[in-house]
């Protein structure tokens, strides 16, 4: 009796084990196949997200999703993209993923600067750009000996015009700590190294409706035209010693700072989200400090060329 019992039990056990092994194998095969198949779309989605954010900071893409260019008066008008080149258009056109990536690759290139502000390329420094971008995203590129920065090339006039275009700005990746978790964004500045073109925040876990407003176009629209180097009361700016960064004040800039030069480097805070605002201020301060030598060089070159 006990023998047949033992036999049944071991038969049951071996059936159970067999069942689990086969089930695990089937699950693993299904998932691995799916993961491999979807790897490319996933990589593209990530790259698209990052590219979009940089284009938004550079004001090449509007936060609402359509391309834009500046007309002669300096106003932004909707644009259409063909082969990576933008031309003014009658109405707002929403581009496809491929078009966005094409414009991104035409207009924005990454390079490195060191602690003295000397620029070098990824090739010369023998660093793999993809790996570098991935590895130091969380700790911050500004903490590395060679810091990541992007140049914005001008909109080409035609397909033949792709080489040697003037540089119309730079994009700096910004890392910081918000209220709940790390915040990641971009800051685009003009070739004079001082004036802001635009900003974006692409990764933040702040309180929805409050701190998360830093990702809203309305709050971000205050930044274009602000100066990252604070002007001294006498109207001049000392680039080696001036405070560097944008301050998010508590309340409205007009009420808190009035007409002082500090107001040129400050933006309104968000009611109920002071700590997130502080996080943003600190992020700009800490990250831009690492790029100061490069920005000083930029400004000097820009002055020299008139």
């Amino acid at each position: 009796m006990s023998e047949s019992n033992a036999a049944t039990v071991s038969k049951q056990n071996s059936y159970t084990i067999l069942f689990m092994v086969i089930l695990s194998l089937i699950c693993a095969v299904i998932l691995s196949t799916l993961a491999s198949a979807l790897r490319e779309p996933q990589e593209m989605a990530k790259e698209l997200d990052r590219s979009k954010q940089m284009l938004i900071a550079s004001r090449i893409l509007s936060p609402y999703g359509y391309f834009q260019v500046q007309n002669e008066k300096g106003e932004y008008v909707p644009a259409i993209a063909k082969g990576g080149i933008l031309a003014p258009a009658e109405k707002k056109i929403f581009p496809s993923k491929e078009q966005i990536l094409e414009v991104y690759r035409t207009r924005i290139q990454g390079f490195l600067v060191d602690a003295k502000g000397v620029a070098t390329s990824f090739q010369k420094a023998d660093i793999d750009e993809q790996k570098y971008v991935q590895d130091f995203r969380k700790t911050g590129y500004y903490q590395e000996p060679l810091k990541l920065i992007y140049r914005i090339s001008a909109n080409p006039k035609s397909q033949k015009d792709l080489q040697d275009r003037p540089i119309v700005g730079y994009v700096i990746p910004i890392n910081g700590m918000g209220l709940w978790d790390a915040i990641y964004g971009y800051l685009a500045i003009e070739p004079n190294g001082d004036t802001v073109i635009g900003i974006s925040w692409y990764d933040q876990k702040e309180t929805p409706g409050l701190g998360a407003n830093i990702a809203e176009p309305e709050w971000q629209s205050q930044f274009p035209g602000k100066r990252i180097f604070q002007e001294s009361p006498d109207g001049k700016t000392n680039f080696s010693t001036a405070p560097l960064g944008i301050t998010v004040v508590k309340g409205k800039v007009g009420e808190v700072l009035g007409n002082s030069p500090k107001a040129l480097s400050a933006v309104d805070g968000m009611a109920g989200a002071t700590l997130t605002g502080n996080g943003v201020t600190d992020a700009y301060r800490m990250v831009l400090a690492a790029y100061r030598p490069f920005l000083i060089n930029l400004h000097a070159k820009n002055q020299a060329s008139g």
């Binding site: 903490q143 409050l210 009611a271 109920g272 989200a273 700590l275 502080n278 800490m286």
Partner: peptide, 23 residues
Amino acid sequence: SAETGQTGQTGQTGQIGQIGQIG
């Protein structure tokens, strides 16, 4: 990090926002 500085502990109830102007 280089300057964990002045971010931290302001201890505000700020994020409750505009409920009855608690601010």
